[in-house]
Amino acid sequence: MAQTSALATVEVHRRKNDGFVGEMRSAAMKLHTREQAREGEKEVKGPEERSVAKWEPTIDGYLKFLVNSKMVFDTLEKLVQKAAFPCYTEFIDTGLERSDNLAKDLEWFKDQGHAIPEPSDPGTFYAGILEDLSQKDPQAFICHFYNIYFAHSAGGRMIGKKVAEKILDKKQLEFYKWDGELPQLLQNARDKLNKVSEGWTREEKDRCLKETERSFKYSGAILRLILL
């Protein structure tokens, strides 16, 4: 009961303090399909855009997904630490970081006898995009930061659960575990995103929102690896 009350309190706080994050969420939801979310507007074009219940994942494909995801999270976390722009320091140690957890998962797969692949084009290409944006366009970079971490905490968790049911005997990977209460970690990150964006012009905010489509495109290419 206490947990339910805490979640409800965080949700009420979120809705009252949406700020610019509310605009970011709206832009992201429009790029979901109706099979993925009730607010989705996009037509289904690729297999990864269908309901997860219809997926047929493979271990090999899932390992490719995890390795390339780690490449992206490694890059994001390194770039935030390097802080080419001062505002990035707001996002150091948010509790949403995934690299260490992914490393543990890949070690577990290795212990099970699976060969761990090297990162491939979807992950290395996206990492390169993030490197470039972090140096010259903080608004665009923060758009990717938001969409990568928040998508993983929502649809990503659902995907992880369904894939585990189908090919991992329901094992929950470390990728889908957080230290602390996830709703509060997300709210803290929303507050920081709103704080940073308060100083942006309308043009800068619109440039951030426009980057949402590219974020979905590159993340979708990595997600598609699960089905290979």
Rank of each mutant, 00 (worst) to 15 (best):
I59N: 02
A103T: 15
V44M: 04
E77D: 02
A37R: 14
P117N: 04
D137T: 11
P183Q: 02
E203T: 09
K161N: 12
R50G: 10
H32Y: 15
W178E: 04
S219F: 08
A127M: 00
A127N: 00
E165A: 14
F175E: 05
T75S: 12
E174K: 13
K166A: 13
A189Q: 12
I226C: 02
Q172N: 06
T4G: 01
E77H: 09
I129H: 00
F85N: 09
E43G: 01
F65H: 13
V67G: 06
I167V: 11
T4Q: 11
G155V: 13
K192Q: 08
S5C: 07
M29V: 15
S120W: 03
P57C: 03
M158T: 11
K110T: 09
L66N: 05
A37P: 00
M71S: 11
K171T: 02
Q36N: 01
D100H: 10
E90I: 05
K162V: 15
E165W: 07
G95R: 12
G180Y: 08
A221N: 11
G113W: 06
V196S: 08
Y126A: 01
T75G: 07
Q36M: 15
L31S: 04
Y62R: 03
I148N: 10
P119W: 08
K217Q: 10
E203Q: 12
S26Q: 15
F125S: 12
T89D: 13
F145R: 02
E43K: 14
K30W: 02
I59K: 06
G156C: 11
E211L: 03
G123Y: 01
F65A: 07
E23F: 04
F216R: 06
D191I: 05
G128L: 00
E211Q: 15
R15V: 01
P57M: 05
R25I: 14
D105G: 11
C208P: 02
N188G: 15
L168G: 09
Y218P: 02
E90D: 11
L96D: 09
V72K: 03
R34E: 13
P138V: 01
C87R: 05
N68A: 04
P47K: 07
T212L: 05
G61H: 10
Q36G: 11
T201S: 15
R38V: 10
K195S: 12
R224D: 14
F150L: 10
V10W: 13
T9K: 14
K136C: 05
K30N: 05
G128M: 00
D191S: 10
E118I: 01
P183C: 07
Q3E: 14
K195G: 02
Y88P: 07
G199Y: 04
H114L: 06
E11N: 04
G61K: 08
I142R: 00
K82C: 00
V52K: 08
I226V: 14
R157Q: 13
D74F: 02
S153V: 14
D121R: 10
P117G: 04
H144M: 07
G123A: 05
K16D: 09
F125N: 06
E39N: 13
Y88W: 04
Q172I: 12
L66G: 03
G160D: 05
E43M: 11
L173D: 06
K192E: 13
I148D: 02
K161Q: 09
V80Y: 04
L173R: 03
A2W: 10
K170P: 03
V44L: 08
R38S: 13
